[in-house]
Nucleic acid binder design. Structure first.
Lengths: 186, 186
DNA sequence: CTCAAGTGAGACACTTATGTCTCATTCGAT
DNA sequence: ATCGAATGAGACATAAGTGTCTCACTTGAG
């Protein structure tokens, strides 16, 4: 009998592979009956919302774990640069699971999730701005754009991994290097 | 009475805003009756498939218009660099519309569309490889990864534009600059 | 003006997913 | 071994979307 969290995990995997999966599909993916799934999550919307909450929690954990606020406040270029490595690495570790949750319509439409993610974006943008002020990142790019660019590269990383174009062990370096120094021959 | 192409355009816009839009929604978006919509496209799948074809056509047009094959064959670094500018600029011009089509499950599952897009990816990858050989792009990044990275930045650009974080006129420079030289302070 | 083609509105049958409920069975704690 | 809680399977009503069809109406060409 899978725990509630295992059910959510199975649902997330299934929805990543097949975004239109029905409650019956999700129950099967978790190895439980449809009725049991409904005992855990009254409606499909509840389940999806909880999945969204889960993903946003992981995102927040990454920001917390990398201590972006503290490092940004320090203003130390070396620490900021290390923190950036750390943050992207944490994001990449989660990117497999995030795919669905961050793009699904029913989630991007939930007001509370949108509000939470806006706060997290603000934290991230503040960190990028600090990195610019410390001379770690170029100051001529809007910090909000940097946040989008990082997100885009995470999408790219996820796709590349899914298709098998890059190996997992190369991913961190690849993404970080592309983000920091770009693709142009120096 | 909107033409068939205008109907497709309206459907694309509507689906970008609301990926779950029903045939009734799409008919309303096009300003026609549901029966009329069904006269143009027998099934929803037909409509979606045609939308996918449309998007892939635009993608192919960008590759053709930039003449990536010819420029790659020339091996001229200056021409290659200009061509890259041109290509990204063309992609960005279409990015508004592509969002839905390239990520929708029902399209990424259509075998013929997948086959076509694989051929286009191959053309694009060949161009990046030529750019590496000519010393325009770094040779230490897999060309297939470069293709993913460009795609990711297009997603980022689309999002940034939708949210209003960047202005349309700045977009080309922003994306190209981020892709080529990265975000790090030189 | 006339007529044919196309259109919109609506009815219809069909399918699929959802959420609720019941009931027999299983499993664990006591 | 027994009791109780939880489960799986299935029935059920409901809702929503799909695809087909009919019919009255508009419109534009002849």
């Amino acid at each position: 009998m899978p725990t509630r969290d295992e059910i959510l995990g199975a649902a997330q995997r299934q929805l990543n592979a097949q975004p239109t999966a029905s409650m019956a599909d999700l129950a099967a993916a978790a190895g439980i009956g449809r009725a049991t799934l409904h005992r855990h999550f009254a409606t499909r919307e509840d389940l999806l919302h909880e999945l969204g909450t889960r993903s946003i929690d992981r995102w927040r954990d990454s920001l917390d774990g990398a201590d972006v606020a503290g490092v940004a406040a320090s203003g130390d270029p070396v620490r900021i640069r290390t923190c950036l490595d750390d943050l992207l690495s944490r994001y990449l570790a989660d990117s497999d699971d995030f795919g669905f949750a961050l793009t699904d319509f029913s989630l991007t439409a939930a007001p509370d999730l949108v509000a939470r993610s806006e706060r997290l974006v603000a934290r991230e943008v503040a960190f990028y701005a600090a990195a610019q002020a410390a001379g770690v990142l170029r100051a001529d790019l809007p910090p909000r754009w940097l946040a989008h660019a990082v997100y885009g590269l995470l999408v790219a990383a996820r796709d590349a991994l899914a298709v098998g174009d890059v190996a997992r062990r190369d991913l961190d370096t690849l993404v970080l290097s592309t983000f920091l120094t770009g693709a142009q021959q120096p």
